[in-house]
Structure formats: structure tokens, C-alpha cells
């Protein structure tokens, strides 16, 4: 029997079996398909609809050894953010989202002999603050059946920030005897031309329900060159990792009203 004839014969047998089916199955179910205990899927009830949340972020710079002339006082580092986020389901496992917000990042600078950020005067406390408007885009993996921020989820995203205001605050402890009772003096330097106006972060966070923890890694250099400081050279970069804890809120009543209006 040649190859083609043999192939045709097998094809005929399978086709015959197809056309000669006996009883008609109207319903066939396996209970295991209904009760998959380890299923990882999200609700699609919000598919095709933006899910709006407000998120407050608190955090700090992750202690990281840095080289150079700038010493860090990690106790004085602080991060605060407030985001308005919108997520939308893509599939049973994935959502994507974007957000707009505001963030404040403060780097505490340790007192040191060679103060790189201003003059050679020694200070008791110094902080470098950046006020920024971030835009972030993220993809969200869901691990439970609940949609959007409900249930366990993991986000991977990108955040771009415009540092619209920079402020260096220096606190100097004065000798009261010399300064007639004035013991503390603050010096404010703003619109620092040696701080980059733009920053990019990679964002990774994991959460459940209203609470999430995450880390942000800055891809860009914190400083830029300026003739006004550090002899025109680029200052040593500050720590790039920021740890955050996030609290997310959404208006469930409003969601329900929207559903009702659409009926």
C-alpha cells in the first residue's frame, strides 16, 4: 500500500467515526473544572471598564553603599506619594494601568567635612528634597480571583517624574554665646540647577487588597553637571532604591451606582 493510499484510508476511518456518532450529548460537565482550588484568575466583571483607585505611598531610601563625597543619613530619608491610578483587565490574569500623582523625595545628607552640595561650612543636618509629578504605567498580574486591587497582585511598571521643584535645606547649630541666644539657623536653596529635572523609575510592587509593598529603582542619574558646583563635574549619585508601602482606596458605592446607571 503506497503512502498516499494508506493516508487516505486512515483519513476515511477517522472521518467515518466522526459522522457516525451515536447519541447526542447536550450537556457534559466535570465538577473538577468548576472547583479548581488553585486557580489563579481574576474577575472579568470589570473588563472593559477603568477601575479608579487613590493610592498613598510612604517609604524611604533603601540603605545602599555609595561612593563619593556625599554621605547619606538614611534616618533622614523620606518618600511620600499620592497617586490616582486606573486599571483595566486584559485577561483573566492580567490588567494594565496608568496613573498620575505627586511625590516628595527627601534625601538626608550626613554631616561631613567635605560638604559637596554647597560650601565648606559644616552643618548639623542637611536634606535634599525633590517635588515631582510622576506618570506611571504598569502591568498587573493577579493571583486570586478578585479583580483589580482585590486579592493578591503583582505590578511591574515604569514611572517617569518631572522634578518641578528642588530644595536643599541646611540646618546649622550655632553657638548661643556667640549669636546672642540664636541657637539654630536654616538655609534654603531652591531650584538647584545641579539636580536632574527628569527621572525614570522601574516599579515593582506586590499587594493584597488595600495594602501593597514595593520597591522603585531609579534608572537615571540624580544629578546633572553644573558649573556652579563640584567644579563642574557630575556629583556622585545618590542611592537608587526606594522602598514603599502603599495604601489604596476605591469607592465601591460609586462603582455600584455606575453599574446601575448602565442597566
Amino acid at each position: 500500500m503506497s503512502g498516499s493510499v494508506k493516508y487516505l484510508f486512515l483519513l476515511f476511518l477517522s472521518s467515518s467515526a466522526l459522522f457516525s456518532s451515536s447519541q447526542k450529548v447536550l450537556l457534559h460537565r466535570k465538577s473538577s473544572s468548576v472547583l479548581q482550588r488553585n486557580e489563579t484568575a481574576q474577575s472579568m466583571s470589570n473588563a472593559g471598564r477603568w477601575f479608579y483607585t487613590r493610592t498613598s505611598l510612604l517609604g524611604s531610601v533603601v540603605p545602599t553603599p555609595i561612593s563619593g563625597d556625599i554621605g547619606m543619613s538614611y534616618a533622614g530619608c523620606f518618600f511620600f506619594g499620592n497617586d490616582h491610578r486606573f486599571t483595566r483587565s486584559i485577561s483573566r490574569h492580567l490588567s494594565w494601568g496608568w496613573g498620575l500623582g505627586f511625590q516628595l523625595l527627601t534625601y538626608g545628607i550626613r554631616q561631613q567635612k567635605n560638604n559637596a552640595l554647597s560650601n565648606q561650612v559644616l552643618y548639623n543636618r542637611q536634606s535634599l528634597n525633590t517635588y515631582a509629578l510622576p506618570v506611571d504605567i504598569f502591568i498587573r498580574q493577579h493571583f486570586t480571583q478578585k479583580s483589580n486591587t482585590l486579592g493578591w497582585y503583582l505590578d511591574l511598571g515604569w514611572k517617569g517624574c518631572w522634578n518641578f521643584y528642588q530644595l536643599l535645606v541646611s540646618q546649622e547649630e550655632l553657638d548661643p554665646k556667640v549669636n546672642q541666644g540664636v541657637g539654630r539657623r536654616y538655609i534654603y536653596n531652591s531650584r538647584l540647577d545641579y539636580v536632574s529635572r527628569w527621572a525614570q523609575f522601574g516599579v515593582f510592587r506586590m499587594g493584597r487588597g488595600h495594602v501593597a509593598v514595593g520597591v522603585m529603582h531609579r534608572f537615571t542619574h540624580f544629578f546633572r553637571t553644573s558649573n556652579s558646583i563640584y567644579a563642574g563635574k557630575l556629583l556622585p549619585d545618590l542611592p537608587r532604591w526606594i522602598g514603599t508601602i502603599e495604601f489604596t482606596f476605591w469607592n465601591r458605592n460609586k462603582s455600584a451606582k455606575k453599574d446601575e446607571d448602565e442597566l
Binding site: 466583571s45 465601591r252 462603582s255 455600584a256 455606575k258 453599574d259 446601575e260 448602565e262 442597566l263
Partner: peptide
């Protein structure tokens, strides 16, 4: 509030 969507 609603018989479908989000029962709150």
C-alpha cells in the same frame, strides 16, 4: 442598589 454588577 443593583441586582447585577457590584453588590456592595
Amino acid at each position: 442598589q443593583s441586582y447585577s454588577g457590584r453588590l456592595v
